[in-house]
Structures are given as C-alpha cells and as structure tokens.
Write a protein that binds this DNA or RNA. Structure first.
Lengths: 106, 106
DNA sequence: TATTTACGTAAGTGTCAACTTACATTTAGA
DNA sequence: TCTAAATGTAAGTTGACACTTACGTAAATA
C-alpha cells in the first residue's frame, strides 16, 4: 500500500494512469504525451507496475501497458478504513514495526 | 490535491491521521506514539494541515489536532474520477455506502 | 547474421523531503 | 515579572527521487 500511495503522489504517474485507464497503450505512445525523455516514462511505468497499478504485456518489440482497476479499488478501501475503521490503530502499530524493520535508515 | 496525495504518501502521517481520525489530540500526545522527535511530528502536522487533512485549535499551551473527513472524501472522489471519469463507479460506491450513512458527495 | 525498432537499464546529477539539535514563542501560574 | 510547560520554527545533514544521456537487450526483417 505504501508503494501504491507513493506512486500516486506523482502527477506524471497519475497522467499515465489516466491515459491507460481503459485501453492498453505502448510505452512510446505514452511517452509522446509528455515533455519528458522516454527513459523517464519507462521509470515511471516501472514504479506504477511495482505498485500494481498497471500491467504489461509484450507485443513484438512493443510493450503494452494497461491500468489495473483492482489496485485502485484497494486504495479506496484502504482510505475508507483509514477514516472509519477502528482497526487502523492496530494496523498503524503494525506498520510502525514494519517501518522500523524495512526502513531502518532514512 | 497534489499536496494531499503527497501528504498521504508518508506512513508516519497516515498513522497520525489514524490517531486523530475521530477525536482531537494534543501534539505531545500524538508524538508520544512515535519514536521520533517532537519537532518531526510538528512538521508532519504542518504538512497535514497544509493539505487540509487535519485542523487545529488552541487550548492553553496545547494545540489540539483533529482529522478533517471532508478532505479525504475529496481524495476518494478524485481517485474515482481518475479511474472512470467518475460516474459509473462513483455511483456504485455511493449506493453501496448509502446503507451505512448518507453522504452527499460532489 | 546484421540492422532496425522499441524499449529498458545504468550511471550520474540536482532538488526536495524527512529527520536531527538548538532556539524562539505562547500561555499558565507562583 | 519570572519560571515552567507545551509547542512551533530555524538551520543543517542525509537520503531518496525525478530527471538526464549513454548503453544494453529483445524481437522483427532483410
């Protein structure tokens, strides 16, 4: 979830998500919409894929990306719980331990 | 919206939000839950306040913080639009949520 | 096999964000 | 007014991140 929210925190990545939300699109076509280098887009796509927000399939030399709605639904569910649920306190404590483990040195 | 999503991208700030989601809490009490310096928490609170996710009121020397649910509702609405340009999925979510409480939405 | 096309990866750089300690500010009370 | 308590602000350091250019890789084609 942490990866997902960090991925969503970037405006360029949100634009990419909007582009591929309903139809798959090759990386080059995505990059064409931005005034960034293609490698930059490639790196953004990698972040989005790592967060589970997009999926990829090969088509010859091209790579077609498509949004993954399930992941965003999970974000929505998480935000709902963050607000309404009492369980979040426990989860927050759990994340605290996980933070100190994986995120040992910032 | 950009400020809000960046604010939510930090695990410490999400923990703070969970702590003050339903009752106001002084800054010191919030900081007591973390293994961070109080200035660090103070800065996080500033970010959250700047994003409109928490509000503050003075009580003597203390400052009581409280979550602002409206802002998170806006985040959810934004994510809905990001996916479907709103409409279908938002309507379904609204109807699903209508059972628990009445929510006007935007 | 050599070349072209489409794309990812590596390496390097500048900027920003999340901490720290030290100090300033505001309010309560003796 | 002086002190103590609660908190915010300033200044500085470190690490992460979003870029860039240069290079590597996989698939189609001649």
């Amino acid at each position: 979830m942490d990866d997902t929210l960090r991925a969503l925190a970037d405006p360029h990545r949100r634009r990419i998500l909007a582009l591929v939300r309903h139809e798959e699109m090759p990386a080059g076509a995505i990059a064409a919409w931005f005034m960034l280098s293609r490698p930059a887009i490639s790196q953004h796509l990698k972040v989005l894929a790592g967060a589970g927000l997009v999926s990829m399939r090969r088509d010859g030399t091209r790579r077609l990306y498509r949004a993954e709605p399930d992941r965003l639904d999970e974000v929505r569910a998480y935000l709902d719980r963050l607000w309404d649920d009492g369980l979040v306190r426990l989860k927050a404590a759990a994340e605290a331990e996980q933070t100190s483990k994986t995120d040992g040195g910032t």
